[in-house]
């Protein structure tokens, strides 16, 4: 009997921007490449999260209206979820889902959307979206690694608690707010980020970070190495595009 990992895709019908499907496809295919099975379980409003049988949470971005619906639903699940994140549940939260983790989101017109308040960070919408290819430098297991993606957000996110670790440092692009060179948030096995494009297929080391975390929590080994020729080519192609003068 092959061991199976279950990834909860939160609110796929409401939070489904920017090819998020690619992140899930990537995780699923890589997990299978490592010899395990993987189920993507779609959870929507009012569905219960069966935490003991969930290995990872994935949530994408949505429009303001949809984010409001999600917020209200998540509020009912909030304590369990926070506890699971503290316990090291792998989670990837992109764009809107990342913003929801903070204290609040203040829209351009002044409307306040409350956040879940998991972390001491907040987001303010400003005119002028931050759009474009982005390159950041991150660190996995003590090794520096480049991460490429595409960002498109009006919100500027600020990490208030200086102990909070960003996902990476912006090399080219905008990141959290276009001011302090931080991008995203990394807390235990949770990554919150503005990078889509989608994020994981072109950054297989990030995908593997999640998979290894899932496996470790279950005491399962990852032994083989996957052929990432195309992944690395695509990664390098974007990098060359962003840094045309450096090869």
């Amino acid at each position: 009997m092959t061991e199976k990992f279950v990834i909860a895709h939160m609110y796929p019908d409401l939070m489904n921007l920017y090819g998020d499907r690619g992140n899930l496809l990537c995780l699923q295919k890589r997990i299978r490449g490592y010899g395990y099975d993987c189920e993507i379980r779609q959870l929507s409003l009012n569905d219960l999260i069966d935490f003991p049988n969930i290995d990872m949470i994935f949530m994408g971005g949505g429009s303001d209206r949809e984010q409001g619906l999600v917020y209200n639903d998540l509020l009912t699940k909030v304590e369990n979820l926070l506890q699971e994140i503290e316990n090291g549940l792998p989670a990837l939260c992109i764009c809107g889902a990342y913003q929801l983790l903070g204290q609040y989101y203040k829209a351009v017109d002044g409307t306040m959307l409350k956040g879940l308040g998991f972390f001491d960070l907040y987001t303010e919408g400003r005119p002028g979206r931050l759009i474009g290819n982005i390159l950041i430098e991150s660190e996995i297991d003590g090794q520096k690694t480049s991460v490429v993606g595409f960002e498109n957000h009006g919100g500027r996110t600020y990490l208030c608690d200086k102990k909070l670790k960003p996902f990476g440092t912006v090399v080219r692009g905008h990141g959290n707010n276009g001011e302090d060179y931080s991008e995203g948030l990394w807390y235990k096995n949770l990554i919150g980020t503005y990078l889509h494009g989608p994020l994981l297929p072109k950054n297989p080391r990030i995908a593997d970070f999640f998979i290894k975390a899932m496996a470790a929590r279950r005491g399962l080994p990852i032994t083989n190495i996957l052929d990432d020729t195309i992944e690395n080519f695509a990664h390098q192609q974007v990098k060359n595009k962003i840094l045309p003068n450096i090869t």
Binding site: P201, T229, Q237, V238
Partner: peptide, 18 residues
Amino acid sequence: GQRSGDIALRIKYAGYST
């Protein structure tokens, strides 16, 4: 094209033989 890597990756993850 300029993003040949991305489309190749998409096709790989679609299950087409590399």
